[in-house]
């Protein structure tokens, strides 16, 4: 995988080899021959190299739902400035990058406040960014749905390899139970306060967390019509 991208975020089509921080965590470097990290010299990849940037989107976001959610949060959650490291609107989706200490209180507010009412935890997934700029490679990403207001919200908490603990959300949304077991199993994120954090996909005696980026995919070479096809993670890669 590419070694030069760190976080998700928006991009913008500015030229001239400058760093672009257009409301997202990642910018891009546009340069005649500056496509570092890509084997592409044909121009097919448009010679664009991503450059990571950590920045919040500017308020107002320009997206009605995102602004409504953030305004409501500012009204009812006074510690918002401390709790939220960044708030990013990208492709019409609001992401709150939250400090883990603030997660339980914020979650309860998101669920219970009449102006927010995120009753449904749709999804919780881990993502591993080995080159995260903050050094916290493991991200626990929650997707919330407000059935009352028909809105969606992404809440992201990132933790380092050395202390991969995140407060469990099972007390707020019981459905987080299996999601958190899966993220623990596959990424090694430890959810404190979870009632029974055991492996769910892999066997109980498995070592390692298979969906981390440094965990090999595995596989063996396969003979096919006289040629040998290497396993997928050893084949030629273009990104």
């Amino acid at each position: 995988m590419s070694g030069n991208t760190h976080g998700p975020g928006a991009v913008d089509e500015n030229g001239g080899g400058e760093l672009v921080a257009a409301g997202g965590t990642a910018g891009r470097q546009h340069d005649a021959f500056g496509a570092a990290g890509s084997g592409d010299t044909s121009g097919f990849g448009r010679l664009v190299a991503p450059v990571p940037v950590l920045a919040s989107s500017e308020r107002p976001f320009g997206d009605a739902d995102a602004d409504a959610v953030y305004d409501a949060l500012e009204r009812v959650f006074p510690q918002l400035g401390d709790a939220v490291e960044r708030a990013v609107v990208d492709r019409g989706e609001l992401t709150l990058y939250v400090r883990r200490e603030a997660l339980p209180a914020l979650a309860r507010t998101l669920r219970d406040d009449p102006g927010l009412r995120f009753e449904l935890l749709s999804s919780l997934s881990g993502v591993d960014y080995p080159d995260d700029l903050t050094g916290r490679r493991l991200h626990s990403v929650v997707h919330l749905t407000s059935m009352t207001h028909r809105r969606r919200l992404r809440v992201e908490v990132s933790v380092g390899d050395d202390d991969p603990t995140v407060p469990s959300l099972t007390g707020v949304w019981p459905t987080a139970d299996w999601h958190e077991r899966e993220a623990y199993d596959l990424f090694g994120i430890v959810y404190t306060g979870h009632p029974g954090l055991t492996r769910i996909m892999m066997p109980d005696d498995w070592t390692g967390h298979p969906q981390r980026k440094d965990y090999p995919l595995g596989g063996i070479p396969v003979d096919y019509k006289g040629a040998t096809v290497p396993p997928p993670d050893e084949r030629r890669s273009y990104s």
Partner: peptide, 29 residues
């Protein structure tokens, strides 16, 4: 690069895809 979450109504309920790209030719997650 970026991430999106898309949810659709499958026969069994909400089917959601959280897809992350790092700007490359393969899904990052």
């Amino acid at each position: 690069a970026g991430q999106v979450y898309t949810q659709i109504e499958s026969p069994r309920g909400e089917l959601g895809y959280h897809v992350v790209s790092d700007g490359g030719t393969r899904p990052f997650r």
